[in-house]
Design a binder for these strands. Structure first.
Lengths: 209, 209
DNA sequence: TATCAATGTTGACTGAGTACAAGTTTTGAC
DNA sequence: GTCAAAACTTGTACTCAGTCAACATTGATA
C-alpha cells in the first residue's frame, strides 16, 4: 500500500473520529460540517470528498458491514441447509457474540452511537434507507438463485424483516437499561420463535374470535 | 366548516398543485421551493407552514392514506378470520380495483408520480421512512392485541414486508410498459403465493443441494 | 363595529452541498 | 535525482432548504 493510500486512510479516520467526538459531545444537528473540518485540520470540501453527506460521517462504517456481510453469509450456506436454517444459525451466532446488528451490544461505544442515531431523525432516515437497500440486494441474490420463482424475493424480504424486528425488540430492552447478558436468553427464545414462524408459517395466528 | 378553514384547504391545494405541476415538468431537484411559492402566489414561509419539508409536497398525500388505512383494515378483520387471511383478502381486493399501493395503477397520473419519486433519491428515502413508520404502527397495534407475544411484532413486519415486496414486483412490470390488466393475473398468483408462504412457512425453501 | 387570535408575509439568517480554478503532494518514468 | 502527470486539497463564491422574529392581515366573536 503506497504512501498516498495510507495518508487517505489516515485523513478519513481523522475526519471520522473528529466528527463522532463532536457529535457525541454536542449532538448531530448542533455541529456543522465546517466545525468537523476544523477539528480534523482539513477543509470543508475535503470532508465532503470523503463523506458525500453529513449523515455518512456517522453511518458509512455501519453501511459497509452490517447487513452486507450478514447477507453474503446466506450465499455461503452449507449443503443440505435451508435458507431459513442458515439464517437462523447465523443470527444465533451473532447473538452469542453480542454483535451490534442483533441489538445486543451494550458496550458504551455502541450505546452512545445508538443514542446518537435514535435521537436524530435524519440519521434514522438514512439508516432505514441502508436497510432497504440491503433487502433489495438480498432479494436480487436469491432471485438469481431461483429465477422466476416469486418466492425468492419474498423470502428475502421476510428474512430481513425478521432480522430487523428482532433487533428492534432487543434494542428496546437494552435502551431501557437491561444488560445484554440479561436479555440474551429471551433474545434467543425470540429469535427461535421468529425463525419457527418463518419456517412453519403464521397459520391462523391472531384469528378474531 | 368556516371560511377560514376552507381558505386553508384552498391554499394547501394551490401550493400542492403548483408544486406537482412544476416537479413533473422539470424534475424535483430542478425546482426550488421559492419557485413553487411564486407559482402558488404565496410566500416561501407559507409553503413550509403547510409542508414541513420539500419532500412532503409530493409525499404528504400518500402518507395520509397508503399504508395507514391498509393497516387499520387489519384491526377490523372479521370474526373467525386469521390475520393473514384478512390481509390476503384486503390485498386481493386492492389488486382488483388496481389500487396504487399494489403497484397496479397504470393511470397516467400514477405513472408520472411513480417516475418522479423513483427518479429522485431524496423522495425514495422519504418513502422508505413512511413505510417503516407504517410497519412500526402496525406492530404496536398487533402487540397491543396479544401482549407479551413476540410473534405479534414479527407478524406485523412479515405482512408489511410482503405487501411491499408484492408492490415492488408489480411495479417493476408496469414500469417496463405492461398494462395493469396484463399484469393482473400474475399479480394475483404472486399475492396468493406470498400469503400461502406466510401462512404455511418457507419450510426448506432454497435448500442447498 | 371593535377586538382577538390565527395565519400570512417579509427579510434576514444558518448551514448543507456544489462548482471551479488554483495550489500542493505523490507517483512513476526516465 | 528530475520532471511531468495524476491525485488530492484548498479557497472562494454560490444555490437552496429550512428557521426565526417582527409585523401585517383577516376571519371569528362579542
Amino acid at each position: 500500500m503506497g504512501l498516498r493510500e495510507r495518508k487517505k486512510l489516515q485523513t478519513r479516520r481523522a475526519i471520522h473520529d473528529a466528527a463522532i467526538a463532536l457529535f457525541l459531545e454536542r449532538g448531530f444537528d448542533e455541529v456543522s460540517v465546517a466545525e468537523v473540518a476544523a477539528a480534523a485540520q482539513v477543509s470543508k470540501m475535503t470532508v465532503f470528498n470523503y463523506f458525500p453527506t453529513k449523515e455518512d460521517l456517522v453511518l458509512a462504517p455501519l453501511e459497509e458491514q452490517m447487513y452486507a456481510d450478514a447477507m453474503r453469509v446466506l450465499g455461503e450456506r452449507r449443503p443440505g441447509e435451508s435458507l431459513v436454517a442458515a439464517s437462523r444459525r447465523e443470527f444465533l451466532a451473532r447473538l452469542e457474540r453480542r454483535s451490534s446488528d442483533t441489538g445486543l451490544d451494550d458496550s458504551a461505544a455502541a450505546m452512545n452511537m445508538l443514542h446518537l442515531v435514535r435521537g436524530t431523525p435524519s440519521l434514522m432516515g438514512r439508516l432505514f434507507m441502508i436497510q432497504v437497500f440491503a433487502e433489495e440486494r438480498l432479494a436480487r441474490l436469491l432471485e438469481a438463485e431461483s429465477p422466476g420463482d416469486i418466492r425468492a424475493g419474498i423470502a428475502a424480504s421476510q428474512l430481513t424483516a425478521l432480522w430487523r424486528r428482532l433487533q428492534v425488540v432487543n434494542t428496546r430492552r437494552i435502551v431501557e437499561g437491561e444488560s445484554s447478558d440479561a436479555v440474551y436468553a429471551d433474545a434467543v427464545r425470540a429469535a427461535n420463535a421468529g425463525f419457527d414462524l418463518l419456517e412453519h408459517g403464521l397459520g391462523d395466528f391472531l384469528t378474531r374470535s
